[in-house]
Simulated scan of single mutants.
Amino acid sequence: MKIKLFDNTEQEINAGLPYDVYFSGRVDVQAYEIEGEWIQNPSYDLQKVIEQKNKEIEEKRKRRYREETDPMYFSIERQSSTKEEWLAAVEKIKKELPYVTG
Rank of each mutant, 00 (worst) to 15 (best):
K60L: 10
Y44P: 05
E84I: 10
L17H: 13
G16N: 15
N14Y: 15
Y19S: 12
E56A: 05
D45Q: 11
E67K: 06
D28N: 11
Q79I: 02
Y99T: 11
M72N: 01
L5Y: 07
L17I: 13
V100W: 14
A31W: 10
I76G: 05
S75V: 01
R61A: 04
G25R: 04
I13D: 09
E35S: 14
R66S: 02
V21C: 11
E12N: 15
K60C: 02
K83E: 11
K92L: 11
E96D: 14
V100M: 11
L46I: 11
Q79M: 07
P98H: 03
A89N: 03
S80H: 06
R61G: 00
N8A: 11
Q30Y: 01
W86M: 11
I3V: 15
S81M: 10
A88N: 06
I93H: 06
R26N: 11
Y32V: 03
Q40M: 09
R78Y: 10
Y22A: 11
Y65V: 01
V49H: 05
E12M: 15
S75N: 09
N14G: 14
R63V: 00
A15Q: 10
K94Q: 12
I39D: 01
R64W: 04
S81E: 09
L87V: 02
V29P: 00
Q40I: 14
W86Q: 06
F6H: 14
K60Y: 01
E51K: 09
E67T: 00
E84R: 06
D45Y: 00
S43I: 08
P18G: 14
M72L: 13
S43Q: 13
E56T: 08
L87N: 09
M1Q: 12
R66C: 05
G16T: 15
R26F: 12
P98R: 08
T101V: 15
V29M: 03
I93T: 08
A89Y: 04
R64Q: 09
Y32E: 05
E37I: 15
T9W: 04
N8I: 01
A88R: 04
M1W: 11
L46R: 12
Y73N: 01
A88I: 02
Y32H: 10
R78G: 08
E59M: 08
R66Y: 01
V90M: 09
V27D: 13
V90D: 07
R66E: 13
F23I: 09
W86I: 02
D45T: 00
D28S: 08
D20F: 10
E68W: 08
A89H: 03
P71E: 06
Q47N: 14
T69A: 04
F6N: 10
Y32N: 05
V49W: 01
D28W: 04
E96Y: 07
L97K: 06
K95H: 06
Y19W: 12
I50D: 05
Y19M: 09
G102N: 12
Q47G: 13
E96A: 05
S24V: 04
K55N: 10
Q40F: 06
S75T: 02
R78T: 14
M72C: 03
E33P: 02
E68C: 03
K53L: 04
P18R: 12
E84N: 05
